[in-house]
Nucleic acid binder design. Structure first.
Lengths: 197, 197
DNA sequence: CTATGTATACTAACCAGTGAATATACACAA
DNA sequence: TTGTGTATATTCACTGGTTAGTATACATAG
């Protein structure tokens, strides 16, 4: 039964995504992932070397879709640069109101596996956040902002802070507060550029 | 052997603190905590109803010392309000350079137990962050800042964002970036107040 | 007939929580 | 002073369930 309609490996990753995101890494057994995917555990271990390998694949599968969503929210928003970045936070707040929302899978995994610094999943999470930061930086640089690198880091800090705080308090309004702070910082950076001319 | 020099309960909490902070909640067994505390597991279960109860006690024990440290860093710093808040971030960056540093125990626990919303440990974590936010708000309000509540939330977001990001990238310089953003936001809020006179 | 993929059945360790017994401190009565 | 009951504190040994990972065999495609 090689090469079924939806490849076995994809089905396993999809099951892992649902379970790991919802219940955390150590809260989900390999057996549970295999059962959800409709395969035996032995089949899962044919496609993945270990649970750690499966966890890495789970996060790798979230990398591009996540970044694409942020870019979509940004590009579809109207207004200037501050408003477009603020739109990301507003859309995130909307997502966070869904009952199944459980914060950022990358951050939660890195928090859970903090005692395993070289873990492949943590590397993937770090690379993901670096990509987002770099996209922000390039966007700011194109807009002629001098301190684009510093500003992109500040926005990233607000974004990841809002993931953590909203998860703790279950109050998405913090994301709107973060968006306003982001907008304010971007506005200040743009004003500084203008005044230097 | 009732009432030894250091009460058994305290020794258990101390052992739980070291292990849970380092390895996470589900990464540490009750047996491991008991062994580190030098008691049998049955003794541990005499003092704590369940592992969840022990986890809550672990976080409750970090509440006051953590807040006291932030207040100390703030009050010992020289300069104006922006500089004093920024000092918290700088001191945090210094802490984060120690190899045993593993982020914020409250946030990491809430991330790990995100699928158990009413968990007592999460309630304690939420209360801890609310206390910090309220202390900031009162400090800003005393300084005559109009939007003290909003500003304190923004600083909290930067603080918790830096916990998450520094844990992921293992790069404490993000904390200094967060401190600069905090300083900038506070400075802007103070200027707004001044211009309104 | 060989490489790819899947299943059954297993191992050895680990885990949260418990039953039953024991030891100690202290209040109070004789 | 001595005995005795009771609440507090601790230990040993155990249970039932779960866990990551594997040895072996079977199936299918090209």
């Amino acid at each position: 039964m090689a090469r079924p309609d939806i490849p076995t490996r994809e089905r396993i990753i999809s099951a892992a995504n649902a379970l790991f995101y919802n219940d955390g890494i150590r809260g989900v057994s390999v057996d549970a992932v295999a059962e959800k995917a409709g395969v035996t555990k032995r089949t899962l271990y044919y496609h993945f070397r270990s649970k750690d390998d499966l966890v890495a694949a789970y996060l790798a599968g979230r990398d591009q879709p996540n970044l694409a969503l942020f870019r979509k929210w940004f590009s579809e928003a109207r207004g200037g640069l501050p408003a477009k970045v603020e739109a990301i936070f507003r859309n995130l707040a909307r997502s966070a109101r869904h009952p199944k929302w459980k914060g950022c899978g990358f951050l939660r995994t890195s928090a859970e596996l903090a005692n395993l610094p070289g873990h492949p999943a943590i590397r993937i999470g770090a690379a993901h956040k670096k990509k987002f930061e770099e996209w922000l930086r390039a966007t700011f640089a194109e807009a002629g902002i001098a301190q684009a690198a510093q500003l992109s880091r500040q926005i990233l800090l607000l974004l990841d802070g809002s993931f953590a705080v909203v998860l703790l308090h279950r109050d998405p309004s913090y994301m709107e507060t973060a968006g306003e702070a982001a907008s304010s910082l971007i506005g200040a950076a743009m004003a500084q550029r203008r005044s230097r001319r």
